[in-house]
Design a protein around this nucleic acid. Sequence first.
DNA 1: ATATGAACTACATAATTGTGTGATTGTATG
DNA 2: CATACAATCACACAATTATGTAGTTCATAT
Lengths: 210, 210
Amino acid sequence: MIKILIYEDNSQLREGLTMLIDGSDGFSVVAAFKNCTNIVEEVAAFNPDIILMDIDMPITNGIEGLKQIRKVNTEVKILMLTVFDDNKNVFEAIKNGANGYILKKTQPSKLLEYISEAASGGAPMTSSVASQVLKMFSSLNTSKGEDYNLSDREKEVLQFLVDGYSYKMIAAEMYIAIDTVRSHIKKIYEKLHVNSKSEAVAKAFKDKIL
Amino acid sequence: MIKILIYEDNSQLREGLTMLIDGSDGFSVVAAFKNCTNIVEEVAAFNPDIILMDIDMPITNGIEGLKQIRKVNTEVKILMLTVFDDNKNVFEAIKNGANGYILKKTQPSKLLEYISEAASGGAPMTSSVASQVLKMFSSLNTSKGEDYNLSDREKEVLQFLVDGYSYKMIAAEMYIAIDTVRSHIKKIYEKLHVNSKSEAVAKAFKDKIL
DNA sequence: ATATGAACTACATAATTGTGTGATTGTATG
DNA sequence: CATACAATCACACAATTATGTAGTTCATAT
């Protein structure tokens, strides 16, 4: 028997969900609340397997609720429910350890299926949401491709800059004169089109040089 | 009518898939091949809506096939098919622009559903695969948790540092005296345990402050 | 009510960084 | 062979940054 806890501010939907789920074999709604004000206590008290969490709720929204639970409980599966597959929320939810993200327009039969999947360790997602996730993923990972063709030695120096070394320290580490370090750095700045250490460091991170 | 192209080395499965899909209303298999040696030409010739791509194929594997198509065609939807939801392949496939990732053990009815979803812009995934994707996502993105409790104003200043502003420029942007900027920065350095601009910038990136 | 801390300003000094100009050596590459 | 370029070093000057000490104001929390 899968124990389910529901957070949904719309009372009609809340009751509808409860009836649907409770009326199905193998599923049991242990409680349903209209806000997540006392969510931590409630989760501890009812010890559910799955939480259905509406995102758009007044006072404490679903993302906040998610964060609060995850601070104390990483076990319970949390399915986010929402009307829109809006980019920002999807991202936030995933970052904070949601186990699935489904749209409210999902048909009842599917919903039960999703709950089962989540209970057995899967991550059910409406496919439009999944599509967004994939896009984010591949965009996050694409390197800018920009190539500043730094020489090997210049890359070494840049690495030291990123690691917070002063010119003097770099000179010592590389067994070269401090003026040589200056000279390398001057060249690096030209190639990266910057004119300060911190800009160079920022660019090294942003463009994933090194 | 959704036009489908199949790549699958196992002839039994290839024919099974073809029969299943071709026998369903609204779906049409335009061709099926046992390897992706000439995939670019084939895709150009048949102009399918969806490609079902087996990952585990001899000679040119599915990931390679995927890459080759994506070089010349970003429109066609590509569904990866595999026996295992093995981590590395999932990651590679997503990075290279796959539109979905489903296990071969998926029931036929589901498969058709997945194809439809992909055709309409979704990203169907077996939920166990989705679960992996989410894990990757959150692990890639997990902030170190380190909280340096910078004040709002300090965060603003740090952001300017990251953007390569000098003290003078920051003072101008924030309508405060340069000495105030110094003062904020001193505080920031204390909180981050650094003692130079570039170190602060590096830490801001590394620990995803801001 | 008082203490705490954020935000602000000021002045001074030392250290580091940024920039210009110039030079030598060795290694490729056409 | 000439040219280009990476890597090395040097000197000088200006600008920026780092650090210390010190004070005011305002809001918030104990």
